[in-house]
Design a protein around this nucleic acid. Sequence first.
DNA 1: TTCATTTCTTAAACTAGTTTAAGGGTAGTA
DNA 2: TACTACCCTTAAACTAGTTTAAGAAATGAA
Lengths: 199, 199
Amino acid sequence: MYFSIMKSEPLIAHFKTYLPFEEAEISLIEDRISRRRLKRREHIMVTGEICRYYTFVVKGVLRLYGIDPTGKEHNILFAAENDWISDITSFHDTTPGVSNIQAIEPSEIIQIAQQDLYHLYLNIPKLDRIFKVITEEKYVELQNRVFQNISSTAQQRYTYFHEKYPHLATRLPNTQIASYLGITPEFLSTIRKEIILGK
Amino acid sequence: MYFSIMKSEPLIAHFKTYLPFEEAEISLIEDRISRRRLKRREHIMVTGEICRYYTFVVKGVLRLYGIDPTGKEHNILFAAENDWISDITSFHDTTPGVSNIQAIEPSEIIQIAQQDLYHLYLNIPKLDRIFKVITEEKYVELQNRVFQNISSTAQQRYTYFHEKYPHLATRLPNTQIASYLGITPEFLSTIRKEIILGK
DNA sequence: TTCATTTCTTAAACTAGTTTAAGGGTAGTA
DNA sequence: TACTACCCTTAAACTAGTTTAAGAAATGAA
């Protein structure tokens, strides 16, 4: 499997959008990550397993979903290019996780194992700063989603999703979007018809 | 207004649950915070204002809420003792915020202004680490809430809220809880009756 | 190119949650 | 003490979203 001379290149480019990095730091990171390809529908974690990696998406789309007591899947988030995905609690505490992570499209990812990430935190202190900022950004996104969920109708939530994530909305099957919005695919279908009819 | 010799004492105790602190660091923090009391219903931020402070709750309960286009309020989160509350985007970007923060009970808070927090980040690097962990913890909580919102009925969400936040559930008016769950107070009332009747 | 699977749509019957309106209980204040 | 504002409840009519079932359209593997 050939990628480029530096397998960490897309990840370094991502970090550099936050703070500058030196060559020595880059090669520390290069030594502590792994890179791999995923097939469509391939899982990198399932409920009950320990989440061993912090995963960065180089190419493709992944979803993190939970399963309710009746066995139904519910999409908690999507991660496309330059986004992160992991079961944070399972990863940090090394405990069995409750979520599932699956590639929706054929994808390419970079992964950092727990011990490697902790090693990097120790040797590159600005990574604490960077992941603090990344987590804050993702926290704010999630907070906006909670506000949508408690204050809007399904149609408004669907419209908001289209405006905020056009690259995802056009690329994902509607069943996946319905699951993310918390409605049935059938109801999403009627919503879409109403929007076309201008209601 | 008299609090104690160290006005930062509850905040330091909070930080020490993450990492040890030395006297020099503590006095740096002591010099960069302010402490105040809030009356019931007092606001520390309203929509359109810039959120000037990261706020730590020493005593009492605050809520962060948004207002929808029809003018209705929706509770995004509550913060009780030893929790943080702020409009993160407005705080970091110094831009007008979209949320409102209000004391539900008479409360006591510790506040850190943006410049002071950045000064502390520079001089006490482990604060980056601590706030990274705090934000991750709060992110996970919010993710669980999103899962509840998209996968459960109102009754299940109410039961979950009671189990997860008993200290809040018993202390808040039901109207505030209904707003947080994304339902009307009338429907919460019928839910509560059904639970008592064992449905 | 064909077959099998996944994805999307329609419609009818159903359930979950809202709205409106009215009334009762309680706490804070003049 | 009585007033006011707030909080909670009940019930009936309504609207938003689900379920079930069936079929059409698109996609992927052989």
